[in-house]
Nucleic acid binder design. Structure first.
Length: 178
DNA sequence: AGAAAGATCTTCT
DNA sequence: GAAGATCTTTCTA
């Protein structure tokens, strides 16, 4: 992506990430990638955001990094979710990557998930396991290991809906999906 | 120190 | 559609 793509309004980033290619260069399995089909925006004005009101903790600090850094957190004790920080440094905001359509490394993903390909990466926790992302990437910048590529996909209809699995901020249409 | 909630997934009915 | 699995993080006392 253009260098400053992530250093802008979180809603814009969440919307524009739909149709882009998420690419992970796995140390053992090689390239695993897919087209992003679902995202959600979280800003520090938002009650559902981990960094609500600028709350910076041992968990949430990567959200405050300059746009384009990786934020990985564990949820429900067993799953991890992948986010990309947005906006300028010091702003606690990010986009949650909720779903991808697998593009390369399909066999690997099927192996890792033990599911048919359509169900390998159609959810935040599933996507994380399908790519087998290294948790040590938390707080690192997008780059050689994990990156988002400007694909030339033409996107028809991006829908806006309420976000999933939250108890606050349900009125905001901050989920983007094809 | 203890408790409660949590940006989910799977399995079952 | 509902519930259980499972445990980290954060808040409260």
């Amino acid at each position: 992506m253009a260098p400053d793509f992530f250093i802008q309004d979180t809603l814009t980033v969440a919307h524009d990430l739909i149709g882009k290619e998420l690419r992970y260069n796995h140390p053992h399995y090689g390239r695993l990638s897919g087209i992003i089909t679902e995202t959600e925006a979280y800003t520090q004005d938002d009650p559902a955001c981990h960094a609500y009101k600028g709350k910076k903790t041992n968990r949430t600090w990567p959200m405050f990094l300059e746009g384009g850094h990786i934020y990985i957190y564990m949820i429900y004790g067993m799953y991890r979710c992948l986010n990309i920080s947005t906006d300028i440094e010091g702003c606690g905001s990010a986009v949650l990557i909720r779903s991808i359509r697998p593009l390369t490394g399909l066999d690997t993903m099927i192996n890792l998930r033990q599911k048919p390909i359509q169900e390998c990466a159609n959810g935040p926790g599933k996507l994380y396991n399908a790519l087998d992302i290294d948790p040590a990437l938390n707080g690192k910048k997008l780059g050689d290991s994990l990156d988002i590529i400007d694909s030339n996909m033409s996107i028809n209809a991006i829908k806006r809906t309420p976000r999933i699995g939250i108890s606050k901020g349900k009125d905001l249409l901050w989920r983007f999906v094809i």
